[in-house]
Amino acid sequence: MPDERDHADPAHAGRLHHVELNAADLDAAAAFWDWLLGELGYERKDEWDGGRSWVNGPTYVVLGAADGTADEFDRRAPGLDHLAFHAGSRDQVDRLTDAVRERADASLLYEDRHPFAGGYYALYCEAPGGATVEVVAPDA
């Protein structure tokens, strides 16, 4: 039976429903996404041989094993540039930034301009596989 959270809700019209990501190394990518999404208030939703998913309210993120091989992710190529998430506070952005600096599977981007690389307070990091992730803080 499908999860009721998988269906559209008119109260959330125009908001993001879900995102699906593919990973060449599912286990390595899942460790990063499980950590980050957990920090952002997502809960584990499902797990199966070829993937994982996490949910936060009406939005969920799916991570699946990529079929075959592909070149390294290039955010400047046609397609997805990055994923951006809301943070609860600047303090949360700072904690996540410190944690990314300690992780072997992610790297901080734009260190010389952090935390205002985009003109506002945010974390920019590269996830396993090369996808760029942004976590944007509310105004102070």
Rank of each mutant, 00 (worst) to 15 (best):
N22G: 07
F32D: 02
D34S: 15
L63K: 09
H17Q: 06
A66E: 07
D67E: 13
G119F: 06
L109N: 15
G50V: 10
A131P: 00
H114E: 12
R103N: 03
L96R: 01
H12F: 13
W33M: 05
A137P: 03
H18N: 03
E72F: 08
D34R: 09
H86V: 07
Y121C: 05
Q92M: 11
R103I: 08
Y42D: 04
R75V: 07
H86T: 13
F116G: 00
G41P: 10
S53E: 05
R90A: 06
D67F: 11
P115E: 05
D46C: 02
P78W: 01
V136M: 12
D9N: 14
L16H: 04
E126A: 14
E4H: 14
H86W: 06
S53Y: 08
R101S: 11
A77T: 14
G79W: 04
A8I: 14
Y60G: 03
V93S: 05
D98S: 09
R76T: 14
H82Q: 07
Y124R: 00
A30T: 13
A99T: 11
V136K: 04
V136T: 14
V19Q: 03
L26K: 08
Q92E: 14
H18M: 09
A8R: 08
E102W: 01
W48C: 05
F73D: 01
G50N: 13
V61H: 07
V133C: 05
A13C: 10
A131G: 00
D139Y: 13
E47K: 08
V135C: 10
V100N: 02
E126M: 12
G38Y: 03
G88Y: 02
A99I: 05
E126Q: 11
D49S: 12
A11T: 15
L40I: 06
A65G: 07
L83C: 09
D27I: 14
H12A: 11
E72V: 14
E126F: 00
A84V: 12
H114N: 01
A137S: 03
F73I: 08
H114G: 04
G129N: 02
G14H: 04
E102R: 06
A23I: 09
V93N: 06
D94L: 10
H114M: 07
H17F: 12
A106H: 03
A131T: 14
L16N: 02
V19G: 01
D25G: 07
L26Y: 09
L26V: 12
R75W: 13
L40P: 05
A24M: 08
G119K: 01
A106R: 00
D81L: 10
A99R: 05
E126H: 00
D9W: 09
G57I: 08
P2C: 01
L96S: 02
A70T: 05
D112P: 02
D34K: 05
H7S: 05
Y124K: 00
D71Y: 03
A65K: 15
A13I: 14
D105P: 10
L63T: 12
V136I: 15
H18Q: 03
V133G: 02
A29Q: 07
K45N: 09
E102Y: 00
D94E: 11
